[in-house]
Design a binder for these strands. Structure first.
Lengths: 333, 333
DNA sequence: AAAATTTCACGAAACGTTTCACAATATCAG
DNA sequence: CTGATATTGTGAAACGTTTCGTGAAATTTT
């Protein structure tokens, strides 16, 4: 049924069905209406191919069913999976997702927050960078991986446990001397706890450990310098490496191979994130997997629940280890 | 300036400034207003921390400044980059992006199209799968990589030229016998032209060529069977491979290495897409790069331009070759 | 059978904008 | 100084919903 240009409104449906406006509204919203009326209204809706205007609804209800998602970009694997899962979690609740890529720029982040407010979104989920972000007190806000204050719930993986798990795994897989590699970030965000967790795990398992943390401007080449300084007669001082992200692990593995070291025979490598290299292929490396889907689900739950007194300031979700070819699994595994 | 619960409206601003509603509206929209009035209104806006309600605007103007983007998922590298660039192109024009991941499911695609219509979006950009998609005639629709009909503009890379370019590159790099590898898809979409282009290029350059196209249910293992059947005494019949996507190329390269063949020494490999392995690192392989940013920009332009008579049914954008370590660049390059 | 009660459709008002006919003021010619 | 013209602020109406007080009809009670 092709309809002339102006989209049919409730008023048109009411006229077509010979009922009042309010009756149509009730039918549309599933409120109790006499069967005779319901049938007439439904027929009219069908005939006119009527669709409710959700923006008029939003105006009336002061609710837009829109959530803004602030994220540095959509193409880093962890982010792109997060977006996917957030999209699913929101759509399940009939919410729309307004995606804002910030490119790590603090002023862009602030701009988007203001813009989100102007768009009267029902809430904001932010994986943000700027520690001095000014968030509006009266718009629900949930962060990922960044604790901004006791009134702003933060959802993250259990990064500390993830670090511990990496150490334990390496120990279980026979490592004696390990290193932690991280790209520099002066930020105090949740993923930083990976280091502390790893250190803790190494101590518990009596592993020798070394850290190499890149400073803010330093290039990845520093890692090669570091590794070469620990290379003697073609043998590395370490038999295990824990990289702060899979992306870094991927680089390091290529670097090791260029240096003539075999992974996992000479040195085992564990990364962090657990996202797939090409979207749905194997893991790029053995890794600590973040529960992306659960993170997304919880963010949305916390954001949309109205009882703000029940919102915990920080939730850490359990991580797990996954084999990805860069460790030597033993038979007990 | 902390404000009590109900957000201030234009009416509040008008009262505060002692002017009429229409005057505030003009100031907000940058229409000519006497300086004395403008100053009073701007002061009131500042004082009350007023933000226009863009949903009320949308209702009045019958324009929601929202565009729905239908895409299989957000984590496949090509898609995630597309989303990023679409986001940028839309945001530049103050449009919002409603992201819908369809998981390649035809019914989900149709559902989302209906939902988008309900949400009164100003347009839809779709990278869709279902060839029988029912699109609403009176809502602007632009597709990516899939030609649905003369009234629905389609934006794509010049896949044919890309295929040609791959063949020419392989020829220039010294190949004599090449193969084209593709995963099966019975769909008639734009990327299918890569094969025809490659074939064309091979003929022009007198290259021996072979095709291996996976049928719909077949696993990637078929490629190994195919390659092994062309392996004699550790030497492959081909010295060049063109893979339909970088993702496939990535698999094939790993497969070749497992088979004891060196890339690019024994066999050179070119993929297609040109997206980065971990978001912003090097190319995963030598590749034909799709102009993702231009595709996104053009989609948005076509979608939002009102003169529908000027919309071309199909636009193919130029691709380029990029070195990614899996070809032997010669000195002339 | 009449009164009391319940049920439920009706339609006006309101949400926060934009727009437009109108009125008020300022400008200028004669 | 008057009357015509240009300028610009005013406020009501409209956009498409939801909500809620009103009252008519149906049902139950005595």
């Amino acid at each position: 049924m092709k309809k002339a240009n102006p989209a049919p409104t409730m008023k048109d449906v009411a006229k077509e069905a010979g009922v009042a406006l309010g009756t149509v509204s009730k039918v549309v919203n599933g409120l109790p209406v006499g069967d005779a009326y319901r049938i007439r209204v439904e027929a009219a809706i069908e005939k006119l191919d009527y669709q409710v205007n959700s923006y008029a609804q939003g105006l009336k209800a002061n609710k837009t069913y829109t959530v803004a998602v602030l994220i540095p970009n959509s193409y880093t694997p962890f982010f792109s999976h997060l977006i996917y899962q957030l999209n699913m979690a929101l759509l399940k609740r009939r919410y729309r997702m307004l995606l804002c890529c910030t490119d790590y720029a603090p002023n862009t982040e602030q701009e988007y927050i203001n813009m989100a407010r102007q768009n009267k979104v029902d809430g904001i989920i932010g994986l943000t960078y700027d520690p001095n972000l000014v968030v509006d007190e009266d718009i629900p806000f949930v962060t990922i991986d960044r604790y901004l204050g006791p009134n702003i719930p933060c959802v993250a993986s259990d990064n500390f446990a993830g670090g511990q798990l990496a150490a334990e795994k390496l120990a279980d897989l026979g490592c004696r001397s390990v290193a932690f590699l991280r790209v520099g970030s002066s930020l105090t965000n949740e993923p930083n706890k990976r280091r502390a967790g790893f250190e803790n795990g190494c101590l518990a398992r009596h592993l020798n450990y070394t850290m190499k943390i890149l400073e803010d401007g330093e290039s990845f080449d520093e890692f090669e310098i570091f590794l070469r300084s620990h290379l003697h007669d073609g043998r590395l001082d370490f038999d295990g490496l824990f990289c702060v992200t899979d992306r870094l692990a991927y680089f390091i593995i290529e670097m090791l191979e260029r240096m003539g070291l075999r992974v996992p025979e000479d040195v085992q490598v564990i990364g962090f994130d657990g996202v797939r290299n090409f979207g749905d292929c194997d893991y790029a490396c053995s890794t600590i997997v973040q529960p992306v889907s659960e993170i997304a689900e919880l963010c949305v739950q916390l954001l949309l629940q109205d009882d703000s007194s029940m919102k915990p300031p920080l939730v850490c979700l359990p991580v797990r280890y996954a084999y990805g070819g860069t460790t030597r699994e033993n038979s007990r595994q």
